[in-house]
Design a binder for these strands. Structure first.
Lengths: 208, 208
DNA sequence: TATAGACTGGACCGTACAGTCCACACCCAA
DNA sequence: TTGGGTGTGGACTGTACGGTCCAGTCTATA
């Protein structure tokens, strides 16, 4: 409509395009049309094909980029295990249960059967990476006797599952928004439950 | 094509239609066209509109019916808590992580933003119901001193999350199929981790 | 045998969309 | 000044789809 034909440095349009496409794909899924994406980026439809060979191509590109933004850090060497896990928990939930995270989840999960490579790439860049980092952290904590010795990857899966699990279902399907207020309390409860299961064994082997 | 114009009792076509629609919607999501659904049910397209007012209507109907099939029972009054949880765990995972369960999950999650009522209905009929039953069971076990006293709904959320959580991610995005063989072992490990966190408190209050 | 209801198959309409083509405008560097 | 690279807007093609209409057929029931 009223787009200024001014500068808009060459390569810039590609960026705006990706940005807009990400937004639209998250909002509408693969349904988002090239037309709308282009106009949302303030760009002619032809320009889209100038940068990407097809809609699939654009979608893959965007999804791949988006997948790389899910990493959660576990830094803070000084703190106690519980504090670090708590920070991790909060960051993970904010990222993964936020509107953007949910939208991306929906969009990619829906198309995974048609784009197997994309689905796998997303998983490897996102959840798998997060899992590995957490597992490494837990492994060290186990090494130091701060957690019960056990398979750290399995433990990491459990914690991540608890953090994302049911709340993701709830939001994915639009059930009651679940009061954002108690976000920290929720995370703390979960982390504490995890710690209870992985407390260093005080007793010998009370378990058959 | 080769459809037999024989009997096919009146109301039967509706059943076949729903059946076929479920299959197609799970396979292709909302993308599945009326045309294909009809032909897959061995029925004329007009017949679809004979029973449903629109594609949305058909989709909602199918999703609603499908949602009602997710309940997992916790019967077996005689067994120990661990055994019953284990049976529950296996049943839940089989149902929810099976091809059908995943497909339904994908289809409904993807359309939930456009069909808010449907999303909520699915959640209430499915996960929410399962959660309630499990919570009731856990509450009783707590009452009987077989589990540590705590909020049973929260505990149920944790267990369900652990059972579905990461494995669902893996399969949803098409990562390595995860050897079906160790299905029981996996379930057992998770249940045991849960029981460890909810073991009746042997010690007083070692936790601040 | 007559009548009503359900199903068929195919024509038809309007729309949305992916992707292509082209004539023109702009900007930058040679 | 000139020419190539990039973007523009709009026309165009082909396809898929949702939804409607209808003429005809079959079946069961009265």
């Amino acid at each position: 409509m009223e787009l200024p034909p001014i500068d808009a440095n060459a390569a810039d349009s590609r960026q705006r395009l990706i940005q807009a496409a990400a937004e639209m794909f998250m909002k509408e899924g693969y349904r988002a049309s090239i037309e709308r994406i282009a106009s949302c980026a303030g760009v002619a439809r032809q320009t889209v094909y100038n940068h990407f060979s097809s809609k699939d191509d654009l979608f893959s590109e965007v999804a791949n980029i988006a997948a790389g933004t899910i990493l959660i850090s576990l830094d803070g060497e000084e703190e106690e295990v519980r504090e670090r896990l708590l920070r991790f928990a909060l960051a993970l939930r904010r990222r993964v249960l936020g509107e953007e995270g949910l939208a991306m989840f929906r969009a990619i999960a829906a198309e995974a059967p048609r784009f197997p490579a994309l689905g796998r790439a997303f998983f490897v860049k996102g959840p798998e990476q997060t899992l590995s980092r957490l597992a490494a952290f837990l492994a060290q904590a186990m090494e130091e006797g701060k957690l019960r010795r056990d398979d750290p990857r399995f433990a990491a899966e459990l914690l991540i599952s608890m953090l994302e699990g049911f709340e993701r279902l709830r939001r994915l399907f639009g059930a009651d928004p679940s009061p954002e207020v108690q976000e920290e309390e929720q995370a703390a409860r979960i982390v504490d439950s995890f710690l209870r299961a992985y407390r260093p064994s005080l007793e010998g082997s009370a378990h058959g």
